[in-house]
Design a binder for these strands. Structure first.
Length: 436
RNA sequence: GCGCCCUUCGUCUAUCGGUUAGGACUCAAGAUUUUCAAUCUUGCAAGAGGGGUUCGACUCCCCUAGGGCGCGCCA
């Protein structure tokens, strides 16, 4: 290995950290940890309109909850605008970029005409070889890359293989907006270069961008990073993930009672495999992770499988840790719930039984509800059905026996069995009302 | 419209030219001498379609179909 790889996760803070972003972050993190490389976090906040501090906070806390620790300080892209501009100016000076005075309206009209004529919608290069005259004096302009038009650009992708684009299909992208702020395309390339990023692993929605970014990199004479574009995640029905459609923030999964290790395992298996292995610990994942085993096709969310995995991890978690998890979970509720000392002790004592039958923390808490409060509980429908007059009579008869029994351990069961035998009843006839 | 990507059980996937196409989730049945859960056993279930290449294709190539992504002075 020539050098330690440098990976990065670069979300834009325009919303929550959703499941797709979390997986992208996970894969980057896994590869960095696998190779002993570096995993950086960069917030792409160049869109001042849509970036919010809340979203930044959500991303950071989401990453933390997922257990994806990043190396060094978080880089904020907007803070580096001067540097981005500097690169653009240099390109301009070298003749690798040019000023385009076309107005937004003019370009919109151009695209409409292209669409109407059934031609590809691309910037037509109207200012590419035109020198601005006196009438352009003082007029706003954008800076565009003077991209090579002949030949092809090949994205060497570690998951997709070589992807070729005819340069004639790529138009001259904007580097600097008319207010001289850098665009995303410029910022990403410059930041990745400055941060020493060696591997750009991101969602497949960026595949097309890779070709254009490569053109920029070429113009800058900068080294080319390794690319890897991850197939997207779809909703349970195969449709695109959207806000109303399964694209939940990772915090939503936390609130539904899923464990971080469940999420890591599940997201890893969504698009990556290691033979027939399904249950993969994070340590194991770090050891095994590679790019070769990443699948090429989009995957769907499957909540049943998530539940199943989560059940496994709940059972595998030590009782004391689960008590802590439950306590933390309850404290996040609105209004927050605080467990009394005795409630915590009861929870700890009952945990071996409780965790056997819960697929989420929410279910675990539901099952433990009776431990938190004293006094009678309301009957649900199923329970009410079991409490027939006969059942009630049976219960009344058993009661003295139970009161005389130590409730801890197997004594309870044998007491009930003995009772049933004496009365000539089937076990179920006693047990069912009792459960109710 | 143009470009690019993808396509094995319902879902996640294994297979890297020769297999009765395997595993997991889901579902169904059974076992575990009361329920639920867990666990175990068994079962249902797949190579989008059509052409090639080859002694032999799920696997390589082409076409079609379907799905996705992109085509902003958004990221």
């Amino acid at each position: 290995m020539l050098e330690r790889p440098v990976l990065r996760f670069a979300p834009s803070p325009t919303g929550m950290l959703h499941i797709g972003g979390a997986r992208t972050a996970l894969f980057n993190w896994l590869y960095a940890r696998h190779t002993g490389g570096t995993f950086l976090l960069r917030i792409e906040d160049t869109d001042r309109e849509r970036s919010t501090p809340e979203a930044v906070a959500a991303i950071l806390s989401g990453m933390t909850w997922m257990g994806l620790n990043w190396d060094g300080d978080v880089v904020y892209q907007f803070a580096r605008a001067a540097r981005h501009r500097e690169v653009a100016e240099k390109l301009l000076a070298n003749g690798k970029a040019y000023r385009c005075y076309a107005t937004a309206e003019e370009l919109t009209q151009m695209r409409e005409e292209q669409k109407a004529a059934g031609r590809p919608m691309r910037y037509d290069g109207r200012w590419r070889d035109r020198t601005p005259g006196p009438e352009q004096e003082g007029k706003p302009f954008v800076v565009r890359l003077k991209a090579r038009q002949e030949g092809e650009t090949i994205v060497k992708d570690v998951v997709l293989g070589d992807v070729r684009f005819e340069n004639s299909q790529l138009d001259d992208m904007v580097l600097l907006r008319s207010d001289s702020t850098p665009t995303y395309m410029l910022a990403v390339v410059v930041d990745d270069l400055d941060m020493g990023v060696t591997h750009v692993i991101r969602g497949a929605d960026h595949l097309n961008n890779a070709a254009r970014q490569l053109q920029l990199i070429e113009a800058m004479g900068a080294p080319m990073p390794v690319y890897g574009h991850l197939p997207l995640i779809n909703g349970p029905d195969g449709a695109k993930l959207s806000k109303r459609h399964g694209a939940l923030a990772v915090e939503a999964y936390r609130d539904m009672g899923y464990l971080p290790e469940t999420m890591r395992n599940y997201l890893l298996r969504l698009g990556w495999s290691h033979g027939d292995d399904e249950i993969i610990s994070t340590e194991q994942a770090i050891q095994w992770f590679n790019f070769e085993s990443i699948g090429k096709s989009a995957a769907r969310m499957d909540y049943k499988k998530l539940d199943n995995l989560n059940g496994h991890y709940i059972r595998a978690t030590p009782d004391a840790s689960l008590v802590a998890e439950v306590t933390a979970f309850l404290s996040r509720e609105t209004p927050p719930r605080v467990l009394s000392m005795t409630a915590r002790q009861r929870l700890q004592a009952a945990m071996p039984l409780l965790k056997e039958r819960a697929k989420t923390l929410v279910e675990l808490i539901q099952g433990a509800e009776f431990l938190f409060n004293d006094g009678p509980r309301a009957l649900d429908e199923a329970a009410a059905k079991l409490l027939t007059p006969d059942g009630r009579a049976t219960l009344a008869a058993v009661l003295p026996r139970l009161e005389a029994t130590d409730w801890r351990g197997p004594g309870l069961e044998s007491a009930v069995r003995a009772f049933a035998e004496e009365r000539g009843l089937k076990l179920g006839q006693v047990a069912q009302p009792l459960r109710a």
